[in-house]
């Protein structure tokens, strides 16, 4: 070689170099799992935790938290989580253009459309429900959208952890809706909120 590109030495070393570089690139392009999962986990743990204290398991509240306060905590925490995620996505979208940024845009709009439709459906039907079931309808349907879009994200980017997180959200959500508002809030806070926190930490450690 006559230029400054030093020769890669032995075949073993070359293969190792290829693997290392590929892993580093994939890691950089996928974003930090700690920022992707953990803030949502914290948001759900706090928000649904507040709802759980509001509902109680047997119809008696465990703490004097109104549903408005619980909802406020959940929305505020989700806003923070969304901001964490958005900073990562904006950084990525300025780096890459082409098919995957078109994919990302469509996926982003899918969230928006899903959440708008979820709101329309809930507004129409929740007023027909007894008051104690209204909150469950809202959280059940919104987690349906979340579960489906997590699985779609897994499919879109071939990310198994994201796909399984979607399956997990669907399963816990289904079980919680069957068991009632108090249980739904508890399971969502602990299994989904906690699950996302643990997933973020584990994936970060493994990376």
């Amino acid at each position: 070689m006559t230029d400054d590109g030093e020769r890669a030495s032995s075949p073993e070393e070359t293969l190792r170099l290829i693997e290392r570089q590929r892993a580093a690139t994939v890691k950089a392009l996928n974003g930090d799992p700690l920022l992707l999962y953990t803030p949502w986990g914290v948001a759900w743990l706090l928000g649904f935790g507040a709802f759980f204290l509001h509902y109680g398991l047997h119809g008696v509240p465990y703490a004097p938290i109104t549903w408005q306060l619980a909802l406020g905590i959940l929305l505020a925490a989700q806003l923070v989580a969304g901001a964490f995620m958005a900073t990562g996505l904006v950084r990525l979208s300025s780096a890459i253009r082409g098919e995957s940024s078109a994919k990302g845009m469509m996926y982003g709009y899918a969230w928006f459309v899903g959440m708008v439709l979820m709101t329309v459906i809930n507004i129409r039907f929740s007023s027909m429900l007894p008051p104690e079931e209204r909150g469950l309808m809202w959280s059940g349907v919104s987690l349906l959208v979340v579960a489906v879009l997590y699985m779609a994200c897994g499919a879109l980017y071939t990310q198994w952890p994201m796909f399984f997180m979607g399956v997990w959200v669907a399963a816990v959500n289904g079980l919680g809706v069957i068991l009632g508002p108090g249980w739904h809030a508890l399971l969502t806070a602990v299994l989904l909120g906690g699950g996302q926190i643990v997933t973020g930490i584990l994936l970060r450690r493994r990376a």
């Binding site: 590109g5 070359t14 170099l17 570089q21 082409g98 995957s100």
Partner: peptide, 23 residues
């Protein structure tokens, strides 16, 4: 390709999706 620096460039670009460009 058989120069460490260019091999790393190639591997990095190959990790992008097809039809993707990086700044």
């Amino acid at each position: 390709i058989h120069a460490q620096a260019r091999l790393r460039v190639m591997v990095t670009l190959s990790a992008l999706g097809e039809g993707d460009e990086i700044a």
